[in-house]
C-alpha cells in the first residue's frame, strides 16, 4: 500500500474514534447543564405536570445512558433522529444551514486566502519597507478588534450611511448566485478582515525564515531576481506551514462564525447550534458538533497530506 494511502486510512479510522469520543463528551456535557429541553422550552410557564407530560412525549424520562445508546444505535445506521424541539428530521434541518455556512466560508476563503498569500509574499519581498509595515499594522488591527466590532463598523458605513450593501444577509430560498454574493458580501468581508492577518503573517514569517538559508543566498549570488528567489526557491519549502495555517483558518470560517451570523442575521449552522444548546436539543447539538469535528479532522488530514505531497523529501522518503 502506498504510504500516503495507508496514512489516510489510518487517520480516518482514528477520526471515527474521535467522533465517537466527541459524541459521548457532548452528551455528558449537555446532561451536566442545568435543566432540560422541556424546562427550557416551557420557560416561565413550566409546571411539574406539563414538564412531566412533555418528557414522556419525547422519551426524556428514560435514564441518560439508555438515551445515549438509543441515539448511538441510530447514528451507526445513519439515522441521526429528529430534533426534540420541533420534531423535524435532523438531515433536513441541517442541510440548508450547512449549505449556507459552507457558502459563506467558501466566499470568505476565496477572497482571503489569495489575498493573504499575496500580501504575505509582498511583505516578505519588501521586508522592512513602508508597505510591509502598513500591511502588518492594517491586518493586525483588523484581527485585534472583536468580530462584532468590525461587523458593526462595516454595517455603519457600507450599509446604514452609504447604502451600498444590505444589512441582512439572509437571501431566502431560491436566490441566484449574484444575489447571494451581494447579500453576503458584508459578512464575508468581516470574515476576510478577521482571518487574513493570521495567514498573511505566517506566509511572511515562513518565507523570511527561509531567506536566511544558504541556498537562497546561492540563488541570489547566481543572479536570480528577487521575485524568482521567493516564488521558485523559497515558497515551495514554505508551503507546509502555510498549508497548515490555511487549513486552520478554513476550519474557523466554518465553525467559529456564530457572532457574524447573529449580526448579519444569516441562518448558518453556528446559530442553529447555539439555539440548540440553549434549548438542550441534544440530537441537533450532536449532529452539528459531529459535523464541526468532522470538518476539523478532514481539514487537518488534508493539510498533512498536502504538506507531504508538496515535500519531495517526505514523498520519497528513506
Amino acid at each position: 500500500m502506498h504510504p500516503l494511502l495507508r496514512m489516510t486510512v489510518q487517520r480516518l479510522a482514528f477520526g471515527l474514534l474521535t467522533l465517537f469520543a466527541i459524541s459521548l463528551f457532548i452528551f455528558l456535557a449537555i446532561e451536566l447543564l442545568p435543566g432540560d429541553l422541556t424546562e427550557e422550552i416551557l420557560g416561565q410557564s413550566a409546571t411539574p405536570e406539563t414538564v412531566a407530560a412533555f418528557r414522556r412525549e419525547l422519551g426524556l424520562d428514560q435514564p441518560a445512558h439508555l438515551r445515549y445508546l438509543d441515539w448511538l444505535g441510530g447514528a451507526l445506521t445513519g439515522d441521526f433522529g429528529t430534533s426534540l424541539a420541533n420534531g423535524r428530521e435532523i438531515g433536513e434541518l441541517l442541510a440548508a444551514r450547512f449549505g449556507n455556512t459552507l457558502f459563506l466560508a467558501a466566499y470568505a476563503a476565496a477572497i482571503s486566502v489569495p489575498l493573504a498569500l499575496f500580501l504575505g509574499l509582498l511583505a516578505a519581498l519588501y521586508r522592512g519597507s513602508w508597505f510591509d509595515r502598513f500591511v502588518n499594522v492594517a491586518t493586525l488591527s483588523s484581527i485585534s478588534f472583536p468580530e462584532y466590532f468590525v461587523a458593526y463598523i462595516l454595517l455603519l458605513f457600507l450599509s446604514v450611511k452609504w447604502g451600498l450593501f444590505p444589512s441582512i444577509a439572509d437571501f431566502g430560498s431560491g436566490a441566484d448566485l449574484g444575489t447571494m454574493l451581494y447579500r453576503t458580501f458584508l459578512p464575508a468581508l468581516t470574515l476576510v478582515l478577521v482571518v487574513t492577518a493570521h495567514m498573511m503573517r505566517m506566509t511572511r514569517a515562513a518565507i523570511i525564515n527561509l531567506l536566511a538559508q544558504p541556498y537562497i543566498e546561492m540563488a541570489r549570488l547566481k543572479g536570480a531576481s528577487p521575485a524568482r528567489v521567493i516564488l521558485r526557491h523559497a515558497l515551495p519549502n514554505a508551503l507546509s506551514p502555510i498549508i497548515n495555517v490555511v487549513a486552520l483558518n478554513l476550519a474557523y470560517l466554518i465553525t467559529g462564525v456564530v457572532i457574524v451570523e447573529v449580526v448579519f442575521v444569516f441562518p448558518g449552522l453556528g446559530q442553529l447550534m447555539v439555539d440548540s444548546v440553549a434549548k438542550r436539543d441534544i440530537p441537533v447539538v450532536q449532529a452539528a458538533c459531529l459535523i464541526f469535528a468532522g470538518i476539523y479532522i478532514l481539514l487537518n488530514l488534508a493539510a498533512d497530506l498536502l504538506a507531504i505531497a508538496t515535500n519531495p523529501r517526505l514523498m520519497h522518503g528513506k
Partner: peptide
Amino acid sequence: LLTINDPTARQNALVTGEV
C-alpha cells in the same frame, strides 16, 4: 416574518429598509 433577535441588527434592518 424574519427572526432578528439582536436588537441592533433589528434596528439596522428597519433603517436600511430591509424590513
